[in-house]
Design a protein around this nucleic acid. Sequence first.
DNA 1: CTATAAACTTAGAGTTGCTATAACTATAAT
DNA 2: ATTATAGTTATAGCAACTCTAAGTTTATAG
Lengths: 201, 201
Amino acid sequence: MSVGLRERKKLKTRNAIQKEAMRLFLAKGFDETTIEDIAEAVEISPSTFFNYFPSKEAVVFQDDLDPLIIAAFNAQPPQMNPIGALRLAMHEVFGRLPPEVNALTRERMALVISTPALRAATVNEFADLVDQIAQLIAHRAGRSPKDFAVRNLSGALLGVMISSYFSAAEDPDADLFAVIDKSMRHLEAGLPLDWANKKRR
Amino acid sequence: MSVGLRERKKLKTRNAIQKEAMRLFLAKGFDETTIEDIAEAVEISPSTFFNYFPSKEAVVFQDDLDPLIIAAFNAQPPQMNPIGALRLAMHEVFGRLPPEVNALTRERMALVISTPALRAATVNEFADLVDQIAQLIAHRAGRSPKDFAVRNLSGALLGVMISSYFSAAEDPDADLFAVIDKSMRHLEAGLPLDWANKKRR
DNA sequence: CTATAAACTTAGAGTTGCTATAACTATAAT
DNA sequence: ATTATAGTTATAGCAACTCTAAGTTTATAG
């Protein structure tokens, strides 16, 4: 009972939309690319686009990394503090990414950073991720995911990530992964103002 | 050479737009209120609306509290740590607000919390505020506003504020000011997971 | 005070993202 | 083969903007 023709076709269309959309976004810019452009490139109708993605933004944010990060987080030693565990988890996942996925991810990040509409949408994405992380932290610490301290810590994580995005946005040469890693180390250290980049790994 | 008729009229129009828009938003909801509705209520043309505000969201985010908070922040004793100083500054400003302004502010927050489009726009607003805060912190600590530690700390502040917003969104009875205050105390304490609400002010 | 310049408002037309509906077509199940 | 179901599409429509050109009001100068 192999996967039906129908589903294979759907997946193909979905992938095609994403690929062509990203190509156009990177070539012309997000705002300068219309749904019609995408539909035309994929040879579907604009209506069909919305059968696959609820919005133009959604195409960009579709990624499959979250489950990997979550798994890597859970694989960290249980006595490790949550921030450090998350940091290492991200480190591992991004480090192990096949080169072309890595490249696409970076291009996507660059696109998000340079597009106001996408930056705004990032919050909601991050919020979801942070929610998931809050659950993991809660589980790890034997607390409720609604626990104030857990949520607040998650919020601070969200904040330093967003801040990293903005920092990276201003310096096109910056390596976003590296910036995020650094910001998490700083948070782990209690955010001291006189923080030099010492505690290497 | 009192302020010209022109400017007085402009200010009046601006205030009228904001007042009527907020009234409609609160009565019917943000998404359910069109620019046309607002224009009609203020007796201007839809075109004119965009002369005063660049977007529907902008009407909601217009507020005059930032300068007050900044002044209060700068008035804190210089040896105080930045998070504590900001916390007290907000405490003072919100505490001293005239009742009707306070009420409007709270209504506005409730509106933002319950409207996805506005939540997304919040980031950019916060980003500005955080930028300003970063400058204050930098000045206070004798560092550059682009200093990594300064920006990261500001980002964490941003994060706990957003997180507070979301928390408050889920519990309509919650007092957002109180939640923010608490989250900043927690951040100040280094975000320990076993944090009970002890260090009362 | 009048002529002219500048600021402000407006109608109107167009673009784009997105929704809803109903017809059409391709695949799957019986 | 027939019917049911899923997926696609054209069409129509709404609302947030944007742009332009024209009209109106206020300010300024002679």
